[in-house]
Amino acid sequence: MKILVVCGNGLGSSFIMELNVKKALLELGKEVEVAHTDLASAMAEKADIYIGAGDIIDQLDNGARNIVRIVNMMNVSEIKSKLDPLL
């Protein structure tokens, strides 16, 4: 399984969110591949779950992808609660 963390430029905010996703997964006891990228690259990249802020991640929602919208990328509890049902 692969989770792709997406932000507009694929730099700072997606890297911070990637670290928090990894922390959430550790707390859930799950071992999952996690990577981060920018929106343009994410359009062509294959993942089981795409996660990011609503304004960015909604652009990836094609009806076939598992999309997770995060309100607060620093909130590990929010990330856990939204990922857990998909794992």
Results as ranks from 00 to 15, higher is better:
11 L>V: 15
52 G>R: 04
36 H>P: 02
14 S>L: 12
4 L>K: 00
6 V>Y: 07
85 P>F: 13
30 K>M: 11
62 N>W: 04
81 S>K: 14
44 A>C: 10
61 D>G: 10
53 A>V: 08
25 L>C: 10
81 S>E: 15
37 T>C: 04
87 L>N: 06
37 T>M: 04
49 I>F: 02
16 I>C: 04
3 I>M: 07
62 N>S: 10
59 Q>S: 09
17 M>E: 09
24 A>E: 07
71 V>P: 00
25 L>R: 05
59 Q>H: 14
25 L>M: 11
53 A>T: 03
57 I>M: 11
7 C>V: 09
84 D>H: 12
16 I>W: 02
65 R>V: 01
61 D>I: 13
49 I>E: 00
33 E>R: 05
86 L>A: 04
53 A>I: 10
82 K>T: 05
12 G>A: 13
22 K>G: 04
20 N>Y: 01
34 V>R: 06
71 V>G: 03
8 G>A: 11
72 N>P: 00
10 G>P: 06
44 A>P: 00
83 L>K: 09
21 V>T: 08
5 V>C: 10
64 A>I: 10
60 L>A: 13
22 K>M: 15
77 S>C: 03
49 I>V: 15
30 K>Q: 15
63 G>Q: 13
80 K>D: 03
15 F>W: 03
3 I>R: 00
47 A>Y: 01
79 I>K: 01
40 A>H: 03
35 A>M: 05
17 M>W: 02
55 D>F: 08
18 E>T: 06
78 E>T: 09
22 K>Y: 05
74 M>L: 14
22 K>D: 05
46 K>V: 12
18 E>H: 02
5 V>G: 06
73 M>W: 06
78 E>F: 11
59 Q>T: 07
26 L>A: 14
32 V>T: 11
33 E>S: 04
57 I>Y: 08
75 N>H: 07
86 L>I: 13
13 S>M: 12
5 V>A: 10
46 K>E: 15
1 M>L: 10
68 V>S: 04
18 E>F: 03
15 F>M: 14
86 L>S: 03
40 A>C: 07
85 P>L: 14
10 G>T: 04
9 N>Y: 13
81 S>A: 13
31 E>T: 02
37 T>Y: 00
80 K>T: 05
39 L>T: 04
36 H>E: 02
26 L>K: 15
